[in-house]
Amino acid sequence: MIAKLNLENILFLDIETVPETEHFSDLDKTKQQLWEAKSKYQRRDEFTAEEFYDRAGIWAEFGKIICVSVGYFKMEGDIRNFRVTSFYGDEDKILKDFKNLLISHFSQQKHLLCAHNGKEFDFPYIARRMIIQNIELPYKLNLFGKKPWEVPHLDTLDLWKFGDYKTYTSLKLLTNVLGIPSPKDDIDGSEVCDVYYKEKNIDRIITYCEKDTIAVAQIFLRLRGDELLHDNEIKHI
């Protein structure tokens, strides 16, 4: 079925997130207590709430989005281009710019969003942060009342499972087994927090996020049986 989809109707994306503040001590007392309760079962007795705080970015209630990278195909006759761009900076601006892209270019019924583990992470995280930032949800992220087959989301992890719900396959592993260049050749997700807060190197994070977005598109092409993108087909805009 995915082989019949028009590639130009799909917006591929990836997000990078970090804890909302650099240090646990920067949170007010109420938020510290809420974090302690929220993380209790994940950290068990191995870490204190403060020691575990560097992982807070994976929860939308305690994290924030620092980069959204998107990619889309543009066909010009027999020439195939994949255009990649990123939104970064203040989270409010990131989310509004991303929403404007969805409304202006990917708002029709035929349009789909695609990410790796997007249904469990990227899509709900973006939606939750929009609500927290008092941004009205765009149609493509507003799932209230939608039936499963009406949800305009594709997930390369979901596609790779083929109905198997017992395992998780990381983007790094999947690119490896499918013969796709690894997007994790510089940093991985566990290092984003330090790169953002300590190195203050947003450019490095943007590059990493865009590589992940390209990798998602490459996986989708492999699942369709299509030829992988060549470097000269990828345009950073």
Rank of each mutant, 00 (worst) to 15 (best):
A60R: 08
G77I: 07
F87D: 05
G89M: 04
R129Q: 06
E120F: 14
V68T: 13
G77P: 14
W59K: 00
P124S: 05
P138Y: 00
L141G: 01
D78E: 08
F73C: 04
A127P: 02
D90K: 10
K96Q: 13
Q133T: 05
R129E: 06
K64T: 02
G118V: 01
G63I: 02
I131N: 15
N117P: 03
R83K: 11
N117H: 12
L113M: 04
H105A: 05
D78F: 15
Q109A: 12
R80V: 04
M75R: 10
F98E: 11
Q108I: 04
K119I: 13
I66P: 08
S104A: 04
V68P: 09
L141M: 13
E91F: 14
D122W: 09
G77F: 04
E61W: 01
I58M: 14
K119L: 07
A115M: 05
G118N: 13
T85H: 15
R129G: 12
K110M: 01
K99H: 00
S107M: 15
H116A: 10
W59D: 10
Q109M: 08
I65G: 08
K140M: 09
F87E: 03
Y139K: 07
K99L: 12
M130D: 06
P138H: 00
K99F: 03
L137Y: 03
C114K: 01
L137K: 00
F123Y: 14
S107K: 07
P124F: 11
F121R: 01
H116M: 14
F62E: 07
I103K: 07
I135G: 05
H111M: 11
N117L: 14
G89I: 03
I79K: 01
M75L: 06
D78Q: 15
K110T: 02
K99R: 12
F98P: 14
W59V: 00
M75C: 09
K140T: 02
F73Q: 03
W59M: 01
P124T: 06
F73Y: 15
F82T: 08
R129S: 08
L95H: 10
N100E: 14
G71P: 15
Y72D: 03
D122E: 09
Y139P: 06
K74A: 14
